[in-house]
Amino acid sequence: MSNIVEVVNLTRSFGDFKAVDTISFTVKRGEIFGFLGANGAGKTTTIRMLCGLLLPSSGQANIMGYNLYTDYEKIKATIGYMSQKFSLYNDLTVRENIEFYGGVYGLTRKQIKEKTKELLESLNLEKQANTLTAALPLGWKQRLALSTSLLHNPEIIFLDEPTSGIDPVSRRNFWLIIYKLAEQGKTVFVTTHYMNEAEYCNTVSIMKDGKIIALDSPARLKSTYKADKMQDVFMRAIV
């Protein structure tokens, strides 16, 4: 498998504070890459740099062979991103949100129409198509947000705490979508607080104070830290 993301000594400081401190890692095409860490460990800052939202202080990164510094407009066309905050417009209807993001990603009117139909069917949201997005339950909102970030068929998807605050059933449904994406050959880069979700990942990286302190598959991490669950791996790693 080829590497779709290559990060070398990436650093980002805010004044004296190093939010991300010389991290290096690679992500393989088609894998689910989990990013773990306490609040403020530097997960979101890393994701923002990889999406071209934040300029790194130093270090290098390539995404699908594009350089982060020079080709970030090209990177944007090939990635999907779902931020921590709900990124759809609450005062637009479900259909209008899909239409807007489809249009912005350069889909034709016909493609938008097809995609909308397909999306509403797969999310079971046909009846809610013309209701305001604000009225949807949080779990549905998150699945809708994920689906709209996939409208342009990106190769790699960055998800920043997509399941925080939603109920276990919705979380499970959300992860089913992530699995499906990985099956289709998409690469999923996901940050989370839930250790049982970490179990579903192919590779897990644990961050602490801006540094990556552990990076491996869940199975090997468990044997290294002599733990049965990722929960224990995490607790032992960050102390």
Partner: peptide, 14 residues
């Protein structure tokens, strides 16, 4: 404030 600007910024919109 709502975070939607961040989402706009990762789209191909210049």
């Amino acid at each position: 404030e709502r975070g939607t600007l961040e989402q706009l910024m990762v789209t191909p919109l210049k």
